[in-house]
Nucleic acid binder design. Structure first.
Length: 270
DNA sequence: AGTTTAACCTGGGTGC
DNA sequence: TGCACCCAGGTTAAAC
């Protein structure tokens, strides 16, 4: 579900209401969602003060008293702040009862998500090993061009590989390639420096716009308050098979790459 | 080493 | 109504 813009929207929604509070008790309803021992997880968080809420790649990172709670939402995960009297949602995985009476709820229908507590040093090591943030200054045409050298993988699955560039998932990979006019089947290593520049601009642009519109809700995605994202109607290719390209009116095509749907225009993407 | 696939899960939609 | 099948925003380990 959630790619960089959705995770960023959740982080911005959680931050003001969560930072400075204190966790009371923790209930792990679905232990398979928690990395490691559920009791250790509960012990590490119960009664602890909450610090900054940030994002790294597609992870929500919550500082908790010297440790870090890292939440990856998988496909259908939701992390929401709710009032004490609000009814509990179905498919509840973990419930954090805050000392002020509100609750932080982790809900996940498919249970592909993961919550993990680790110390700051362990997290720093993990974060340092991740790919480049596409909205950082480090992500430019020079870097993308260099990273793609020698790769025979098609550029679309290449872009979704979190080991090199983080945050871009199935929706925004298709969207960025359309904006850049690049065929998703083109070998990553065949990108010219000029095309690398264009793709960098397109990735940054689509992610930034999607953040402005609070992400894309197709079905499951909700922000920290349970609200939907507004970017779905601005998608140019994703889930629009057979519909006209907004640039050239040619019908859009759907193909499968790496087991995932890719949408693109065979006329204006080369 | 780089790349592709299959698996992890549930639910919603479609066609018979 | 039931059933088989396909599809879904992610990540990972195993298999090429």
């Amino acid at each position: 579900v959630p790619e960089l813009p959705e995770v960023e929207t959740i982080v911005r929604g959680l931050s003001p209401g969560l930072t400075g509070t204190r966790i009371g008790s923790v209930a792990v309803i679905r232990p398979d969602l928690v990395a490691g021992d559920a009791v250790a997880f509960t012990d590490a968080l119960s009664g602890r003060p909450v610090g900054a809420v940030t994002r790294r790649a597609k992870n929500i990172v919550i500082a908790v008293d010297g440790d870090v709670l890292v939440v990856n939402l998988g496909m259908t995960g939701r992390l929401m702040l709710s009032d004490a009297d609000a009814p509990l949602p179905s498919h509840l995985g973990v419930r954090f009862d805050l000392e002020d009476g509100r609750r932080l709820l982790y809900q996940d229908v498919r249970r592909f998500g993961r919550l993990e507590v680790m110390d700051r040093v362990a997290w720093q090591v993990r974060a340092d090993a991740m790919g480049v943030e596409p909205l950082s200054d480090a992500f430019d045409g020079s870097l993308l061009h260099r990273l793609t050298r020698g790769s025979r993988s098609p550029i679309k699955p290449w872009l979704m590989d979190q080991r090199r560039v983080v945050g871009v998932g199935n929706i925004y990979a298709s969207e960025a390639l359309h904006r850049a006019g690049i065929n998703p089947r083109r070998a990553a290593g065949s990108l010219s420096r000029q095309r690398a520049d264009r793709l960098v601009r397109a990735v940054r642009e689509v992610l930034s716009e999607a953040i402005e519109f609070r992400g894309t809700t197709l079905l499951d995605y909700r922000d920290a308050s349970g609200g939907r994202g507004g970017f779905a109607e601005r998608l140019r290719v994703y889930d629009r098979e057979g519909e006209p390209c907004r640039r050239c009116t040619h019908p859009l095509r759907r193909i499968v790459q790496g087991g995932r749907s890719t949408f693109y225009c065979t006329r204006c993407q080369r």
